[in-house]
Design a protein around this nucleic acid. Structure first.
Lengths: 179, 179
DNA sequence: CGACCTCCATACGGCTGCGTATGGTCCGAC
DNA sequence: GTCGGACCATACGCAGCCGTATGGAGGTCG
């Protein structure tokens, strides 16, 4: 019979988003998921919109945290490999990323999704450049590689492309570092 | 004051899908879009589900038609270029494709989306192979290139990646034909 | 112990979309 | 011209989700 806080709701909202898209981030369903009623929700939030924003903010903080942790790895190649392993392994995170691009009709979603994706690209570009490649070439490769990553996620969603995670990580790594 | 048929509804449903996702393929909104009432709809279709299926079938026929037309082009390189120009130019078609991958939680959608995307991949693979490349290499390149195409569509949705259409076509072409 | 604050449940009204029922209009067949 | 079928409008009940109102349980602090 633990009491909830706003972050608990944000986490649950993110889970709902991953499973059913933005429409699934609805007050009553998420309340059921948490085992409480709407009465609880409207104590923590003004309205549904606020929940969506909270989930987005929570997600942005979370991905920023991941980047912070990765930056502790000194060797850029190892840093890159760890990043890719994380990216291909964390299904929930991948699902949220994909959903938020899909739901980018919503301006708030588009804003946050753009910011987070650009943050990732900048981080990866810096890391690749650190391996001794020119900045411009690094940016090109990262952009191409990241687009491939997103596309592969899409194809896997359709049951096309059955490569396992390890193979994809090595492929992406080769592409980013210039085979 | 023209009378409508099922295909008119399917077309309107596809437009709604492109603009607002599967949720926007709703009876009353689409009826408004067509300037009629629900009474009309339920004469042509049993329920909302039937409209979605009709839209999917319509889309599948449409893309099949495009492939049929492309197959009239004898030179595989020109065929490929024409295909890519079509793919990058037709915003509505790209939007529908993207939406249907996003909405692949729906089994019917997933089914049709998988079939259509695999049809495209097979067609492209055959065309690339026809340029004198081994079948296996052709399949790899097409898969990678198609994933990039989907990923680029996603990034453009977020306002990242601003390349114009012509540049993207040439880039994809180089990638597919082995730069 | 009692006043208070935090967190939650219940009940309600409103909106939107689904599906049904029923009746209306136009148009060709005879 | 009237009869039947194709196509559509209107009105209704139902369900899910939003947001509000109100009150209740449990802990805290004087």
């Amino acid at each position: 019979m633990v009491k909830l806080n706003a972050d608990d709701w944000a986490r649950a909202a993110l889970a709902a988003l991953a499973e059913g898209g933005l429409a699934a981030v609805a007050v009553e369903p998420v309340a059921v998921r948490l085992g409480v009623s709407k009465g609880s929700f409207y104590w923590h939030f003004a309205n549904r919109r606020a929940l969506v924003e909270a989930a987005l903010a929570f997600w942005e903080r979370e991905t920023e945290q991941i980047i912070q942790n990765l930056e502790k790895i000194p060797d850029p190649r190892e840093r890159l490999r760890t990043l890719l392993e994380l990216a291909f392994a964390d299904a929930m995170e991948a699902a949220v990323s994909f959903r938020l691009i899909s739901e980018a009709d919503d301006p708030s979603v588009a804003e946050v999704a753009r910011r987070v994706n650009e943050r990732r690209l900048a981080f990866m570009t810096a890391t690749v450049a650190e391996t001794g490649i020119g900045d411009e070439a690094a940016e090109r490769r990262v952009l191409a590689g990241y687009a491939s990553y997103l596309g592969v996620a899409a194809l896997r969603r359709l049951g096309i492309m059955h490569e396992d995670t390890a193979a994809l990580v090595n492929l992406a790594l080769a592409e980013l570092l210039g085979e």
